[in-house]
Simulated scan of single mutants.
Amino acid sequence: MSELATQHCEACSADAPKLNDDEIRQMQADVPEWEVKVVDGEKRLSRVFKFKNFAGALAFTQKVGDLAEEANHHPALLTEYGKVTVDWWTHKIGGLHRNDFIMAAKTDKAYEG
């Protein structure tokens, strides 16, 4: 388990620096199942979580939503039969911040638990 999962998000302002490619690679080592993708010119962390049915996917979506509310940091969530796609990025800066990796690790922990 990544120790990122025990950390807390920091308040982020619009002028906070985005992580550069080297920083992203270093942090991605702690959440290796997440991929970096670009959507509308912004880098995001993305992962698809698998479930046996819609009920399991929906329950996981609620867990991630609860984590997001607690941290005041919100992902894009797509809930489908048997899977949930989660994308984390920092809207205020239009890219990736340390907070996104913390939340990815917390999401992984919620999936395992």
Rank of each mutant, 00 (worst) to 15 (best):
E69V: 06
S46Q: 14
T61F: 01
I24H: 11
E3G: 00
M27Q: 15
V86Q: 04
G65I: 08
A76R: 13
K43M: 08
D30H: 15
L67Q: 13
E23H: 05
V48M: 05
M103W: 01
G95R: 03
E80V: 12
N53L: 01
T85P: 03
D21P: 11
W89V: 00
E3Y: 06
T90S: 15
W34V: 07
L19D: 07
L77C: 09
F101H: 10
I93A: 03
H97S: 15
D87F: 11
E112L: 10
I93R: 09
A16Y: 13
S2C: 03
A59G: 05
F54Y: 15
C12Q: 08
E23M: 02
V36L: 05
D15Q: 13
M1A: 12
V48T: 15
A11D: 13
K52T: 09
D66M: 11
A104K: 07
V39Q: 08
P75N: 00
V86I: 12
E42F: 00
W89I: 00
F54N: 08
L19Y: 10
V38E: 15
V64L: 01
C9V: 14
R47H: 13
N20C: 02
E33M: 02
S2P: 15
K37N: 08
N20A: 02
K83F: 04
D21G: 05
V84Y: 08
N53R: 03
T61S: 14
E10Q: 14
D100K: 05
A29N: 07
G113D: 13
L4S: 04
L4H: 04
K109V: 09
V86F: 02
F49N: 03
H97E: 01
G65W: 08
K50Q: 10
D30K: 11
E33Q: 12
G56T: 06
F51H: 09
L19P: 14
H91K: 10
E80R: 09
D108C: 06
Q62A: 06
I102E: 07
V64N: 02
R25E: 15
E70A: 14
A5H: 06
F49H: 02
E70M: 02
W88N: 04
L4P: 12
Q62H: 10
G113W: 00
A110Q: 14
H73S: 04
K43E: 08
K109R: 15
A55Q: 13
V84R: 06
A105M: 10
A105N: 11
A110K: 12
T107M: 04
F101P: 15
V31R: 03
D40Q: 12
D21R: 11
D30Q: 15
R44Q: 14
H74F: 03
